[in-house]
Lab assay of single mutants.
Amino acid sequence: DWEDIVRFLRKLFELGEEVVIGDWHNHHREEIKRLIEWLEKHF
Rank of each mutant, 00 (worst) to 15 (best):
G16E: 05
H27R: 05
D1K: 10
E3A: 08
I5K: 02
R7G: 03
E37K: 08
W2P: 01
E37M: 12
R7Y: 03
E14D: 05
W24P: 04
H27F: 14
G16P: 04
V19A: 07
R29T: 08
E40W: 15
L35W: 05
W38N: 02
K33W: 13
V6G: 02
E17S: 11
D4W: 15
N26W: 10
E14F: 07
L9A: 01
G22A: 04
R34S: 08
K41F: 10
E31I: 15
K33S: 08
E18Q: 14
E3R: 12
L12H: 01
H42Q: 06
I21D: 09
W38V: 03
G22V: 05
W24M: 09
K33Y: 10
E31P: 03
N26A: 12
I36M: 06
H28V: 15
E14L: 08
F8H: 02
D23C: 14
H42S: 09
E30V: 06
E3P: 08
L35Q: 01
V6W: 15
L15R: 04
R29G: 08
V6R: 05
G22R: 04
K41Y: 06
W24Y: 07
L12S: 01
F8D: 01
I21N: 10
R29C: 14
H42G: 04
R34N: 04
G22N: 07
I32D: 00
F43Y: 05
W24N: 08
H27K: 10
K41W: 11
F43G: 02
I32K: 01
R34T: 04
W2M: 02
L35S: 02
F8K: 03
V19Y: 03
I32V: 05
D23F: 13
L39T: 01
F13V: 03
V6I: 13
R34E: 05
F8T: 02
E18C: 09
E14T: 06
H42W: 15
H25S: 03
L12E: 00
H28P: 07
W2L: 03
E37A: 08
L12C: 13
L9D: 00
E37P: 01
K11V: 07
L15K: 02
V20C: 06
F43C: 15
H28Q: 06
L35F: 14
H25E: 08
D4C: 13
E18W: 14
W24G: 05
L12W: 05
G16F: 15
E18T: 11
E17H: 13
R29A: 12
E17F: 15
E14P: 03
R10E: 02
L35N: 01
W2K: 01
K11P: 00
H25L: 15
W2H: 01
E14Q: 12
F8W: 12
F43A: 07
E14I: 06
K11L: 13
L39I: 08
L9V: 02
F43T: 04
F43H: 03
N26Q: 09
L9Q: 00
E14V: 05
W24E: 06
R7F: 12
R7Q: 06
V20N: 06
K41D: 06
W24I: 09
G16M: 15
E17W: 15
R10W: 15
N26D: 14
E18I: 11
D4F: 14
L15G: 02
W24F: 09
E3V: 10
W38K: 03
G22C: 14
V6E: 03
W38L: 06
H27S: 10
N26C: 14
L12D: 00
E31S: 12
W38P: 00
L15S: 03
I32C: 14
D23Y: 07
G16D: 04
R7P: 00
I36G: 03
E17V: 15
E37W: 13
N26P: 12
K11N: 04
H42A: 10
I21E: 09
L35Y: 02
L9E: 00
D1S: 11
H25N: 12
E17T: 14
W2D: 02
W38D: 02
K11I: 11
D4G: 07
L39P: 00
K11S: 05
V20Q: 06
K41P: 02
D4A: 12
K33T: 07
I5L: 09
H42M: 13
K11H: 05
E17G: 12
E31W: 15
E3C: 13
G22Q: 06
H42D: 03
I5W: 14
G16R: 04
L9Y: 02
V19F: 04
E14R: 10
K41L: 06
R7W: 04
K33R: 13
L12F: 05
F43R: 03
W2R: 01
I36W: 10
F13P: 00
H42I: 13
D23Q: 06
K41V: 09
L15P: 01
I5D: 00
D1T: 13
W2C: 14
I5V: 06
K11G: 04
W2T: 01
E18N: 14
I5T: 01
F13S: 01
F43Q: 03
E31D: 09
D1M: 12
F13L: 08
N26S: 10
H28F: 15
G16T: 11
H27M: 11
L12Q: 00
R29I: 12
E17A: 15
D23G: 10
E31A: 12
I5P: 00
D4Q: 08
I5R: 01
H25G: 13
G16Y: 15
R34C: 09
V20G: 09
E3M: 12
W24D: 07
E31H: 11
E37I: 11
I21Y: 02
R34F: 07
I21P: 10
D4M: 10
L9R: 00
H27N: 10
K33I: 12
L15N: 02
G16N: 05
E14H: 07
E18A: 14
N26E: 10
W24S: 06
W24A: 08
K33N: 04
L12N: 00
D1L: 15
V20A: 08
H28G: 10
E17D: 06
V20M: 10
K33Q: 10
L15C: 12
W2I: 05
F13N: 00
K33M: 12
L12P: 00
I32M: 04
E31R: 10
F8P: 00
H42C: 12
D4E: 07
N26M: 08
I32N: 01
E18Y: 11
E17M: 15
V19L: 13
R34L: 13
F13K: 02
V6T: 03
D23N: 10
E37Y: 11
I32Y: 09
H28S: 04
E17N: 13
V20Y: 08
L39H: 01
F43N: 02
K11F: 15
I21M: 09
H27Y: 07
K41N: 05
R10A: 03
E30Q: 10
V6Y: 13
V19K: 05
I5S: 00
N26G: 08
W24Q: 09
F8E: 01
L39F: 09
H27A: 11
R29N: 09
E17L: 15
I36F: 14
V19H: 08
I36K: 02
D23T: 03
F43V: 06
I32T: 02
H28L: 15
L15W: 06
V20F: 13
E40P: 01
G22K: 07
L12T: 00
L39S: 00
L39Y: 05
K33G: 05
W2Q: 01
L9K: 00
K41H: 11
G16W: 15
D1Y: 14
R10Q: 07
H28T: 08
L12I: 08
E14G: 12
F13M: 05
H28W: 15
E14K: 08
H25C: 14
D23M: 07
R7L: 03
V6H: 07
G22D: 07
R34Y: 10
E3G: 08
E30G: 05
D23P: 04
R34G: 03
W38F: 08
E3D: 11
R29W: 15
L39Q: 01
E3F: 10
E3N: 06
R34M: 11
D1R: 12
K11Y: 14
N26V: 05
K11M: 13
K41M: 09
E18H: 14
V6C: 13
R29K: 10
G16S: 11
G22P: 13
E3K: 08
E31Y: 14
L39E: 00
W24H: 06
I5G: 01
L15T: 03
N26L: 06
R34Q: 09
I5Q: 00
R29F: 12
I5M: 05
K11R: 13
N26F: 08
G16A: 15
R10M: 11
L35G: 01
F43K: 03
L35H: 01
V20E: 05
L15E: 02
W38H: 03
E30S: 05
W2V: 02
L15M: 06
F43P: 02
L35T: 02
W38Y: 05
W38E: 05
F8V: 03
K41T: 13
H28N: 04
F8A: 04
K41I: 07
E31M: 14
W24T: 06
R29L: 14
G22E: 10
W38R: 03
D1V: 13
E40N: 13
D4Y: 13
E40Y: 15
F13I: 05
H25V: 11
I32W: 12
